[in-house]
Amino acid sequence: MNKVFAAMAGLAGIAALGGCTQVQEPAPICNMAGIAAQRQLVALPAAAPNEPSPLLEMPLNSVSITDYTVMNKLFVRNVVAQRTPTGTVKVVSQIVNCTDYPLNVEARTQFYDQAQAPSEQVSAWKRLNLAPRTFNTYSENSIGTRTVQYYMVELKETR
């Protein structure tokens, strides 16, 4: 019985500690635990045709933070793609700096064709200055027109 009480007391203590971490932060508030929970895992050991890729964190039509140093500092608010009047594709993404410090990051985009093969060379790294607790917008245009069907954005800290 004592053991049950001890266990319950322990759980209550952990819950209290968890409560202490719920500090109210000014906007924007980034739920990093939620982002981590959304990451999906694939069990395959290597890339094979018509099989899911083991590159778990880099799905198409998304922004992937590829740098460990800023993984829990940035929040990708959204990413959209649209056709320009000339038929090229423009990818636009809003990146939020969740920290109280300025951050310099850079991003690049790879565009893909219908077969999910790269349709052109990857874009050059584009710098983005993020003041503390602000967001900035990253955008990139494709070179190709109708051949472009998918995209993938990589994001890392500028060094």
Partner: peptide, 8 residues
């Protein structure tokens, strides 16, 4: 280069 190609 990319920006010019987006200019009609």
């Amino acid at each position: 280069m990319r920006d010019m190609l987006a200019e009609p």
